[in-house]
């Protein structure tokens, strides 16, 4: 496993046009919030002007706790994703 620490992960939300909600479209890596907005515009709107973008660090999102209403939830805490921030993989696990 590499010693280098990558940039933090950001989740990206885009309002495609006026009148619509921001919708989650994916994620990216950026060194800070400003650069994350820039990268989000480049990657997820590909030069389309006039859309609104939100970015938020993935580790800042809190999710509802799983309860018996949705038994599919894994009992894995209150984070949205199994992102590496909260899910460490040992380096010696082959082929992960």
């Amino acid at each position: 496993m590499s010693a280098r620490a990558g940039w933090p992960l950001y989740e990206v939300f885009v309002r495609g046009k006026r009148g619509l909600n921001h919708v989650h479209v994916g994620s990216l890596h950026a060194p800070d919030d400003e650069m994350a907005v820039h990268a989000a515009r480049d990657v997820y709107t590909r030069r389309n002007e006039g859309v609104s973008i939100w970015v938020v660090r993935a580790d800042a999102i809190t999710a509802s706790s799983p309860d018996e209403k949705d038994p599919m939830f894994a009992p894995s805490g209150d984070k949205v994703y199994r992102h590496p921030t909260f899910y460490d993989i040992p380096a010696d696990v082959p082929h992960i």
Binding site: H29, A39, D42, V43, R47
Partner: peptide, 15 residues
């Protein structure tokens, strides 16, 4: 340096 920058270079060059 990163994929995000590949895309940014591409956008600038295309403009």
């Amino acid at each position: 340096p990163e994929l995000e920058e590949e895309v940014a270079f591409g956008n600038t060059a295309l403009d």
